[in-house]
């Protein structure tokens, strides 16, 4: 079997990169190699994983500086003798080795608006057309790997913004609620304010790293910014609302 040199971050904030030489097979992914390392050389190496198929979003890390899912990074991209640096996600506080404390994301999940549906139809069912839900279905593909949150420079390089900025993953959640065909409440004009949409400078790193292939910037953030502009910066619509003709949606 060919061998790669892994440089893996070990320990907490005061830890260091340790070098290991590990065997691998071409058909494997980085996570397999990390598991081999764990069962043979570093039993207590902390790493998260669940599905090994890019479905659960547990195994996020930075492989040679690129935020990626370890279970979806194939060894075929490397050749024997390569050096692979594996580091924990930078944006979140480090717990140990490759595991970070992502609690901030769960706090934001509670913060953003939640879905409140319209009344059901007379027969107790809801009717929605496929073309109306397709936009939302794209957002529902999110596996909560938080790679987009990790790569977003607004918080990656400026942690102080964490208070005012919920991050791309939660912009998606806001978009999914705001654009839901059955949504009844959160379309109020101020529903989008206060979450830091205006901190995003649409540089698209979130879209670049998203393993679910969600066009976060084009389909969620910019449309939300535009909806916010409808409410906040468009004098015609403002006038319309004042004299109650038409609605912003």
């Amino acid at each position: 079997m060919p061998i790669v040199e892994l440089k893996v971050w070990r320990g907490g904030d005061d830890g260091e990169y340790q070098t290991f030489h590990v065997e691998y097979d071409e058909g494997e992914v980085i996570l397999d190699v990390v598991h081999r390392l764990q069962s043979t050389q570093a039993q207590d190496l902390a790493v998260r994983w669940n599905c090994k198929a890019g479905k659960c979003g547990s195994c996020s890390a930075e492989v040679n500086g690129k935020p990626s899912l370890m279970c979806m990074t194939r060894m075929i991209n490397f050749t024997s003798g390569d050096v692979i640096a594996i580091s924990p996600m930078k944006t979140f506080p480090l717990i140990k080795d490759l595991v970070t404390d992502v609690a901030w994301n769960y706090e934001n999940a509670r913060k953003v608006p939640h879905f409140k549906p319209k009344e059901r139809d007379a027969d107790g069912k809801h009717r929605m057309m496929q073309i109306d839900i397709e936009r939302g279905q794209e957002f529902h593909q999110c596996i909560e790997c938080y790679l987009c949150q990790n790569v977003c420079h607004v918080i990656r390089d400026h942690p102080e913004n964490k208070e005012n900025f919920v991050g791309p993953r939660f912009f998606i959640q806001m978009a999914q609620v705001n654009m839901h065909p059955l949504e009844s409440v959160s379309q109020k004009p101020d529903a989008l304010e206060g979450y830091g949409l205006d901190y995003c400078n649409i540089t698209k790193c979130c879209t670049d790293v998203c393993p679910a292939g969600i066009k976060i910037t084009d389909n969620a953030i910019i449309p939300l910014k535009e909806r916010l502009i409808d409410d906040k910066f468009d004098p015609l619509r403002w006038l319309g609302r004042k004299i109650k003709i038409g609605n912003s949606k």
């Binding site: 549906p117 059901r120 809801h126 009717r127 057309m129 496929q130």
Partner: peptide
């Protein structure tokens, strides 16, 4: 199933807009 829809789930639809 309908309850999940009520919580916000977006199931694929039939031509008539049902699940």
């Amino acid at each position: 199933v309908l309850e999940l829809e009520e919580y916000g789930a977006l199931f694929d639809r039939t031509e008539d807009g049902l699940i």
